[in-house]
């Protein structure tokens, strides 16, 4: 494990922005922190980057404590903030050179790394243009590049695609894969589930300062049922209690959850499970008002886990 977070807590006044977050990241992994705005992703990444000190808990990066060895941690991490943290009146090259110097680079080594990074983000031809002349997507790419100059072992990316066009997003994704292929470990936060699904080897879903689910994409979707979900809305007065056990025993059914007058049935094969489930409901005298079948997704999982949309 290159990163280990144990019971991290960050409180502002009485309110906990991060409330007992634990996870670990293996070397070479792209680890996704998924959650809506305000879930605690940025606070978590700020603790790992040493920008914030946790109120409680501990985190280590490559064995170094973010609390006690912040200076050493800063030398091996790269941080790409959510904001475009660049100087708009300076050129792309001037910005990169400045940040490179902050990481101790200089001379020919700095020149070479600036060129490599600018070529990686495909903006070498625009190196002498001021940042303020760039599009939003190009600014994001330079913003990413500024965190790569010192070839960090662990890279923290805080919502690096906010506000960019699809083409620039593709560029950023390609760059992230190249960085991973070069041996870096990446922590990627986003509230776009499709990004996390595409990029991440391991995903932790956060809500209200807590990790509410964690695993690979397959493991997470399995929580919904690999074959999808049957969502049934039962007309009042609803179903008698204890019906879930009988539904769960039907063919292919992997899980049942009730929420008011709705019943969510996870299944390994929704089409096969649907007839016996309907039969059970009919036998119990439940009148089904509406029915929906859908494929498993992080979005649906998030709704199942929290009862709200991911983008809220």
């Amino acid at each position: 494990m290159i990163v280990q977070a144990d019971s991290l807590v960050k409180k502002y006044g009485g309110a906990a922005a991060v409330d007992g977050v634990s996870f670990s990241i293996e070397k070479g992994q792209i680890f996704g922190l998924l959650g809506p705005n305000g879930a605690g992703k940025t606070t978590t990444i700020s603790i790992l980057s040493t920008y914030l000190k946790p109120t409680a808990g501990e985190a280590t990066i490559d064995g170094l404590s973010v609390r006690r060895q912040a200076g050493k941690v800063r030398e091996i991490i790269g941080f790409v903030p959510q904001e475009i943290a660049l100087y708009p009146t300076l050129t792309a090259l001037q910005n990169l050179k400045f940040y490179g110097k902050m990481y101790g680079l200089g001379g020919a080594g700095l020149e070479r790394r600036c060129r490599e990074v600018l070529e990686l983000v495909e903006l070498w031809q625009r190196r002498h243009d001021n940042i303020e002349q760039f599009s939003g997507g190009m600014k994001r790419r330079i913003n990413l590049g500024a965190g790569l100059l010192h070839s960090p072992r662990f890279l923290l990316l805080d919502e690096p695609t906010v506000g960019v066009d699809p083409q620039s997003r593709e560029h950023i994704f390609d760059t992230i894969f190249k960085i991973r292929d070069n041996g870096a470990t990446i922590l990627y936060t986003s509230h776009y589930m499709e990004e996390v699904e595409l990029l991440c080897d391991h995903i932790a879903i956060m809500d209200r300062g807590k990790v509410i689910a964690s695993g690979t994409l397959r493991e997470l979707l399995k929580m919904l049922g690999e074959g999808g979900v049957i969502e049934l809305e039962v007309a009042p007065p609803g179903c008698p209690s204890g019906l879930e056990t009988e539904i769960a025993s039907q063919q292919g059914v992997t899980g049942v959850r009730r929420e008011d007058n709705k019943v969510f049935v996870s299944s390994s094969n929704s089409a096969r499970s649907l007839p016996p489930v309907m039969k059970v409901l009919e036998s119990a005298g439940c009148e089904v008002g509406s029915l929906e079948l859908y494929a498993p997704s992080l979005e649906k999982l998030f709704i199942q886990l929290t009862g709200k949309e991911l983008r809220e």
């Binding site: 980057s49 040493t50 920008y51 200076g71 800063r74 030398e75 991490i77 941080f79 903030p81 959510q82 904001e83 475009i84 943290a85 660049l86 100087y87 940040y99 902050m102 990481y103 101790g104 500024a146």
Partner: peptide, 13 residues
Amino acid sequence: DKGTLGRLLVAPV
């Protein structure tokens, strides 16, 4: 506000 100071604070400076 724009994060450049924050970026410096997580650099070895």
